[in-house]
């Protein structure tokens, strides 16, 4: 190193090799980020193409008929929608109180040591595949729980037991999002409340929960969306085969939108009038996609609002 070295501007830019590599890496990373957009476009494209096919070929009066009989050209949407509502409502009745209570306990009451044991257990529950809950709903929830209380409940499966199964599946989801929401409440609020003499109960119920309420609402909405989209529990434990008569009562067998899709796809013997059965899959899929997307967007909005508070 001597003073004889001459500097010019181009050397300050670093080596061209390094700069080139920078551009490459950025380009590749950008392309990777764009694949998610591509996936969305492909999903929407594949749904819409056949869904439009379905809606233009089907006799519209058949969308409001006796039940869901896709291979006989009868596609009653209310059968699927009412079953989906039942399953979702029952799932939320099970999951919302249990999940939120678990979150409140973990965030407000549990000592760090207890938390360290409980949280992994909830995470294991979250990791249980949905087929397993389907089996559990069919082999345990229905015969042991539901049918010992309700004699009329269909023994080969019904919407109550499927709903409870879906509910169990969504407990960890509600618990985890709610816990995040509760944890985001600044400690200053708790301390201030305790400082003016409020009891723990008062602090939790009157201060922390209201402060986290938008996060809790978001948890509820996201779990609802998950319950609507859950397939296997209802497919295995909902009791209906590939078809369902319109049933207003949750003790009957029922087909949700997702289970109807699964059973069209699961294949069967050829039957008279099978025309639009295949494309109905895409139509119901598009409907499902639209509903869950709306719920997720709403939940996102709610979360954004609550983030602004602090």
């Amino acid at each position: 190193m001597t003073a004889a070295v001459k500097w010019d501007v181009s050397e300050l830019q670093g080596s061209p090799h390094r700069r080139n590599r920078e551009r490459w890496v950025k380009g590749v990373a950008f392309a990777a980020a764009l694949t998610s957009v591509l996936i969305s476009l492909l999903i929407i494209g594949s749904l819409l193409f056949e869904a439009v096919n379905f809606i233009t070929n089907v006799d519209l009066s058949r969308l409001w008929d006796r039940g869901w009989f896709p291979r006989r050209g009868v596609f009653d949407l209310k059968t699927l929608i009412v079953a989906t509502l039942w399953v979702t409502v029952i799932a939320m009745i099970v999951a919302a109180p249990l999940g939120m209570a678990a979150a409140v306990y973990m965030s407000e009451y549990a000592t760090p040591r207890v938390r360290k044991i409980l949280k992994p257990i909830l995470e294991v529950l979250a990791g249980i595949p949905s087929v397993v809950l389907g089996f559990f709903a069919l082999q345990f929830i229905n015969p042991t729980l539901v049918r010992s209380w309700i004699d009329d409940a269909n023994s080969s499966g019904n919407m109550i037991s499927a709903g409870i199964g879906v509910g169990i599946l969504t407990i960890p989801l509600i618990a985890s999002i709610s816990e995040d929401a509760l944890a985001a409440v600044p400690n200053a609020l708790r301390e201030a409340s305790a400082g003016i003499g409020a009891r723990k109960l008062t602090t939790t119920v009157a201060i922390v929960i209201p402060a986290a309420v938008s996060g809790l609402v978001a948890a509820f909405i996201i779990a609802t969306s998950r319950a609507i989209g859950e397939t296997m529990v209802v497919f295995i434990a909902g009791g209906a085969a590939a078809t369902a008569l319109f049933a207003g009562s949750p003790v009957d067998q029922g087909l949700t939108m997702t289970a109807a899709m699964a059973s069209v796809a699961a294949g069967s013997d050829e039957v008279v009038g099978s025309g639009e059965a295949f494309t109905s899959l895409f139509f119901v899929g598009a409907l499902l996609f639209a509903i869950t997307l709306c719920l997720n967007v709403i939940a996102d909005r709610v979360v954004k609002r609550y983030r602004l508070e602090y």
Binding site: F69, R71, R72, A241, A242, T243, S263, S268, D269, E270, V271, V272
Partner: peptide
């Protein structure tokens, strides 16, 4: 059997 079954189709036929 329901419409997804071959036995259903045969009965009709």
């Amino acid at each position: 059997p329901g419409e997804e079954s071959g036995t259903f189709a045969s009965f009709i036929e």
